[in-house]
Amino acid sequence: MAQQNHNMLEVSGLKKRFGDDIVLDGVDLTVSRGEVVVILGSSGCGKSTLLRCINGLESVDEGSIRIDGEEVAVGSRSLTRLRQKIGMVFQSYDLFPHKNILDNITLAPVKVQKRSKQEARAQAEQLLRRVGLWEKRKAYPRELSGGQKQRVAIVRALCLNPEIMLFDEVTAALDPEMVREVLDVMLELAQGGMTMLIVTHEMQFARAVADRIVFLDEGKVLENLPAEEFFENPRTQRAKDFLQTFEFKKQ
């Protein structure tokens, strides 16, 4: 197939301002098919904005974003179609509170992708079983724990058969015991060959899951290295300082 020649995601020269604030200042980033890239950086460095731009939730001021060779353009007709190639999971639980778990998952496959109810349900069942939540299919989001909600949110995105998954600090709002169950699902996905772009503050997880680390600071890519190399031997002082903040030593 011709499209195999494209990178799954290509971001080039991306600039984004909010008023006078420059949030993204010329970001270049490529993610190839099957690759897992983790974006690190302190709060306010533009990580979330980058993901939102990729998904077309924010318009960009300069530069371009291509998914599978196709330009992401806010407000264009192709955007809705393109978004089906992108699965996104947000930090805050974003399930639809008035629909039960199964309806949350099958809504877009049925209404947007025009798939049959039975077929969408079958896939939902398979995915829910995989994350251990099939028995919760009739429950409403309010009856689930934070970790369960995030697993459902992942399943909901997966049910559209996306080609790349974006995760925006999906465990940041969770109780510590619940972080694990969500990260395990993501690890399994990565091992299954899913292309993933992950924003997280879980360093150990990042190290375990990532093929490559992109370190953002003040809207610029400071480092773009294979994961081991980044953690063992970061190039910039800024990245060293950043990693230092996650280390605890007895005084």
């Binding site: 998904n55 809705t80 978004r83 639809f96 509170p97 809504l107 877009a108 209404k111 947007v112 559209l160």
Partner: peptide, 25 residues
């Protein structure tokens, strides 16, 4: 607002988002 955004990220257009997500709530 996150409801609208997550609907958008699932590929729902404005009409579907209003009809299925925003209006019922």
């Amino acid at each position: 607002k996150i409801q609208e955004e997550s609907a958008a990220s699932l590929g729902l257009n404005k009409w579907l988002t209003m009809k299925e997500i925003i209006f019922p709530q």
